[in-house]
Every structure is written in structure tokens, then in C-alpha cells.
Simulated scan of single mutants.
Amino acid sequence: MRAFTRKLSAAMLLCASLSGVTTMSYADTPNPNAPVSMVGTWDKTFAESTKVDHRKVTFRNRYGITLVGDLYLPKDRGDRKLAAIAVSGPFGAVKEQSSGLYAQTLAEKGFVTLAFDPSYTGESGGYPRNVASPDINTEDFSAAVDFLGLQREVDRHKIGLLGLCGWSGMALNDAAMDTRVKAVATSVMYDMSRAMGHGVGDGKDRYSTVDRRAVLHYLNEQRWKDAENGTFAPGGHDIYVDDKGNVTASARILPETLPANPNPVLKEFFDYYRMPRGFHARSVNSTGAWTATTPLSFMTMPLLSYAKEITIPALVVTGEKAHSRYFAEDAYQALGSKEKELVIVPGANHVDLYDNAAGKIPFATFEQFFKTNLK
């Protein structure tokens, strides 16, 4: 007998589903691939740097979805063509949060950087809203490489990727496929295929094969409901499989207020996404919900299937106390590169490396890695 309750929700704390979310209909938008918005004012969760130039940009992926990004350039760049880095993540965040902070900081170090919203999220196009795909979101990174390589300030032979949290797996997957990428780095990696397909809890996988089949059955029953209703129901990621194989789910993950003695991981995410520290209205994790069936493709499409074919320089950074640490360590072992480095940040938990609130993001390490390998 299985003596404990298994939960997908430990992985999906990243995919916070909050109150006030309505179902979505394809007919709600006249052009599903167009940008949702292009906010011109500074609306980031971090302060604007005086050392870089910033401009809002758009570009399309090969599925025709228009992505919206923030391009950061060093003010002292002159006429030189510079190395460039495409940045995205965490899973369910927007470019106004962690990826923008990483991008702006690395631009201060001399790189052209692009923080972008993946398809179906933030200001980028794609419908239904708030859905993720291991294929399309990997393609988003290649589309960012397309864009960067066309900029007059960029040396297209010196482009790298940086994936944060759940977008680390997309970055590594793209590095295995896109031969134009010369170096790849990750920060507090989450392998979303593994997280959704096998569950996360106590630093290890939690689902048995029986559990996986129960979750798949539950999600495919939801497909019938969506097809009948003509909508894409939100939430459903707080999925429980009990000892008898019964599945229950809730559309809500992060509460309005923390309970007494909250789970430490819950508190980490709540303190970032739901508090002024990291809250952003366009972030799925702060205010919305993923579509209920989002896990399906991740469950049978492992992102790191070709990790051995990644032979470019790779940097894997995680926190000593991060609940996600095992994802990073296993990914590091799987990489085929002979020039790879695993950095464990002392005392850092997962969310510490989102916004540097405790001064723990090793920006100097990222800077040195990209300067060494994008030359």
C-alpha cells in the first residue's frame, strides 16, 4: 500500500492558480497570435538601471505567434557588435520579474540581452492564454535567437541562452537542437516534464506508474469537458492521488493568506509572487491559472531526452537548500558537454535566486561564464 498522498501540486506551486479566474473561449480574441499588450512605461518589479538602454520589441516564432520582449543594451557599447543572451523564466512568470532582472544585470556587464514572455503568456500572443508546451516554448528560445541575430548591435556568432526555473529545461532542450547557440546556462532548474509527469516532493519524484495513469485519466476527462463546453478550463493543477488511486484536484494553489505553519516551499513562492516583492499583474503565478490540461504534453515529452547531445559550454546554478536542487544535479550529469560546471549557492533556497533579495544570485559567475564562452 502506498502510505502517503502524492501530489502534483509540489511541482505546480510554480503554476499558481488563484481566485477570480474565468474560462477561456477561442472566440474571445480576434487575432490569437497578436501581442496582448505593449506597455511602454517601466512596470518591472526591479529598478531601472541607468547603465543600459532599454526598448520594447516584438518577434515571431515559426508557429506565427508574436512574442514580446525587453531588449537591454549597454550604454557604453559604441559601434561594437556584442555577444547576446536570450533569457526567460521562471515557469509562470513574466519578463517584468526575474528574467528581466537577470537580463538587465547582464547588460550592465556588457551583453545585449533579451528577456521575453513565452507564447501564450504575459504580453506575448497565442491562444488560449496561460498554456505551456515543451515544443512551442523550446521554439520560443530559437525565435529569440533569430531576433538577436538580426540586430545590428549583436554578433550572431556569439549568442547564448539563460533559462530560469521551469524555463531551464526549455533552454537546454533548445541548446540540444539549435546549433547557433554557443553557450547555455540555467538557474534553479526545474525539469517540467519530470515535475508534471512524476510529481515533486521532498526533493525527489513521487509518482508511481499507477499514479501517472490516474493523473492522465483525470486530465483526459477534463478534455471531454473542455470540448463539450467550447472553453479551456483553468486550474486543476493541485492534483492528489490517494492510496486507493482516487484523483481530486483544486483550481487554487496559492492561498490569499498563508496558513499557520505553512509548507516552506509554499511560503517561498507566496512571499515572491503574491507579495509586493515580486507580484506582477500579468504573471500567471501572481494572478492567474494555467489551463487545466497544460500538463498533458509534458508528461510524455521529456525535455532532456537529448541532453547528451549538448556539447557546448554549460553552466548549471542552483541553491544549496533549493527543493529543486536534484533537477539541476541530474541535468548536469546528463549533459554531454566536456565544458560544464555545477554551482551550488551556499544557503540559497529556490526563490532566493529569483530576485537577489538576499544577495545570493551569483551574477559574477554568469558574467564570467558568458564572457569566456561567447568570444
Rank of each mutant, 00 (worst) to 15 (best):
M192S: 14
S193T: 15
S193R: 05
R194H: 11
A195G: 09
A195T: 04
M196L: 15
G197S: 02
G197A: 03
H198K: 15
H198N: 15
G199Q: 06
V200F: 12
G201Q: 14
G201Y: 10
G201M: 12
G203S: 09
G203N: 12
K204D: 10
R206H: 00
T209Q: 15
V210R: 14
D211Q: 04
R213V: 14
R213Q: 13
A214Y: 10
V215L: 08
L216W: 07
L216H: 10
L216I: 07
H217V: 01
Y218W: 10
N220G: 02
Q222H: 06
R223A: 08
W224L: 12
K225S: 08
N229R: 13
G230Y: 09
F232Q: 05
A233T: 10
A233D: 08
P234G: 07
P234H: 05
G235M: 01
I239H: 02
I239Y: 04
V241M: 02
D243S: 13
D243E: 11
G245W: 01
N246W: 07
N246C: 04
V247W: 02
V247M: 04
A249C: 05
A251K: 09
A251Q: 07
A251I: 01
R252F: 09
I253W: 04
L254N: 02
P259F: 08
A260R: 11
A260I: 01
